[in-house]
């Protein structure tokens, strides 16, 4: 029961962090790419388009340190797909609101932007996520990993002390003898 609850919680956290990441990536992509419509204007939209997905995915990766590496990769894919979906929703919002009529040019416009955003975002999100997870594992190890490491350190120290008391040398030192 506890394992199931933990699994559901893990899945929920994974989805929540990924969705939040997608929202951040999509919002800043839209604000930079369609500058006239966003509440903030970037002096250099290119930097925002390149930096924000990388930064967001890096943080996302750090938040996913308790998961396997493959989960970080899946999260990158999931985040990119969600971000592209949010960008598509932005593009077709006038159509959904019924304030424009659909035309061939709109379809072409949407397809071009979708292709561009997917091609731009996925490598950046993937890179950020994997690097973030790797660094996160080093500097922010999950509680269980940290405890395991501490226990291992205590055990190793105790073992060294035992060896010191008996006067024996650690096997590594003995191995170095000619």
């Amino acid at each position: 029961m506890v394992a199931l609850t933990e699994r559901v919680r893990d899945a929920g956290m994974f989805l929540a962090w990924s969705f939040l990441g997608a929202l951040i990536v999509a919002a800043f992509f839209i604000a930079a790419f369609f500058g006239d419509f966003g509440p903030i204007r970037f002096t250099d939209p290119g930097i925002a388009i390149l930096f924000m997905p990388l930064f967001t995915a890096f943080i996302l990766g750090m938040l996913l340190t308790r998961y396997e590496l493959i989960v970080a990769v899946i999260s990158a894919l999931f985040t990119t797909i969600l971000a592209v979906v949010l960008i598509v929703l932005f593009l077709v919002a006038p159509l959904m609101a019924g304030v424009v009529t659909e035309g061939a040019s709109l379809q072409q416009f949407v397809l071009q932007r979708v292709a561009l955003s997917a091609v731009l975002l996925f490598p950046l999100v993937l890179l950020g996520c994997v690097v973030g997870r790797a660094i996160g594992e080093k500097i922010l190890p999950p509680e269980e990993t940290r405890k395991r490491r501490e226990e291992l350190a205590v055990e190793t120290r105790a073992w060294h002390e035992q060896l010191a008391k008996t006067g024996a040398k650690p096997p590594a030192d003995e191995a170095r003898k000619p």
Binding site: L23, F90, P94, V100
Partner: peptide, 23 residues
């Protein structure tokens, strides 16, 4: 990250509203 997500949510909603209003 959560704070950034909230800001992004505001940016997204505001952008969609303006784009719809513009169209």
């Amino acid at each position: 990250y959560l704070g950034l997500g909230l800001v992004a949510g505001g940016i997204y909603v505001s952008s969609v509203a303006k784009f719809v209003g513009y169209s």
